[in-house]
Write a protein that binds this DNA or RNA. Structure first.
Ligand SMILES: [Mn+2]
Ligand SMILES: [Mn+2]
Ligand SMILES: [Zn+2]
Ligand SMILES: [Zn+2]
Lengths: 151, 151
DNA sequence: TATCTAAATAATAATTATTATCGTTTATGA
DNA sequence: TCATAAACGATAATAATTATTATTTAGATA
């Protein structure tokens, strides 16, 4: 099936990345990467750990943290800007931005090409060199507006 | 002097806010608020505590945390979006945005009226109601570029 | 394919950031 | 001044993350 094929391609790409970056391709790393590539909800380390336990029953939470840290340092994934205490992660991909619901805490992607193409205010140059620009919108999502909210 | 007068006005405004919100005006709260209103570096709770100890030697770190939480719930201050583990705070003021240096970690304000006035992408409406929009720019500041960095 | 070794893992302990508990102090209103 | 609920400080507890270490394993080599 298509899904099956996609998995295969993803795995090949990941193996390639490991070879390039010079780190070992382990089952744990592959599954953590897969999980993050498939997720759209910017999971925390604990969430990833919980989701993978059925498939990798011996996986330690520490390994999840270590692996996420490794991936981040090599640019395969990024941490999301939040005001929460738990770090939230996502696979590095196309430039995009985030909507955060103040009630349920869900973090949703959105794309905004007009913004991506807009030049920064000129005085930014005096500050230094900018390499990434993020927009975060806070508000209340439709689901929470209608019901009374908490995830 | 002018500085002295400003302090006085600030204190009056703060006392007013306490009365309105219905919470007690204590020395601790006043000093924490003052410190945050004067700071431009988005200090963490511990930083505020350290700065106030000379003036309030019995101030507990716990009180700083509790007070910041109170202020935040009443909209007097806000947490800053970061990927750090420590929460960083600022007094609520004019709409503005942040530059974060990847090397030294300093968070600098910048203003961008063009952005503030720009309409959001239309499909955002389907998500819900947005009440705040933040831009965060990541990069390397001039100081770090020139020297070798770390705060 | 069997062997070797540095890197990675899991278990555990430690650290860091934040919040809760509780007895004492204090701001505020009668 | 007095009463009282709110806030404080000391301390303990919890939550999130990182360090330590003995064991396992990916990947290189013979
Ligand atoms: Mn995202
Ligand atoms: Mn700011
Ligand atoms: Zn919501
Ligand atoms: Zn810097």
């Amino acid at each position: 099936m298509i899904e099956h094929h996609r998995q295969h391609v993803l795995q090949a790409q990941f193996e390639q990345a490991c070879r390039e970056k010079g780190f070992k391709m382990t089952q744990q790393r592959l599954e953590i990467f897969r999980e993050l590539a498939a997720a759209s909800d910017h999971p925390a380390a604990e969430t990833i750990h919980r989701r993978l336990l059925p498939k990798l029953p011996t996986l330690s939470l520490d390994t999840v943290y270590r692996t996420l840290s490794t991936f981040e340092h090599h640019g395969l994934i990024t941490k999301v800007d939040t005001t929460e205490s738990q770090a939230r992660f996502e696979a590095a991909g196309e430039e995009h931005h985030h909507l955060i619901c103040r009630k349920c805490g869900r973090i949703t992607d959105f794309y905004w090409q007009r913004f991506d193409e807009t030049a920064l205010p000129p005085d930014i140059d005096r500050w230094g060199r900018v390499s990434k620009k993020n927009v975060t919108l806070y508000g209340i999502c439709k689901e929470c507006e209608e019901s009374g909210g908490r995830r």
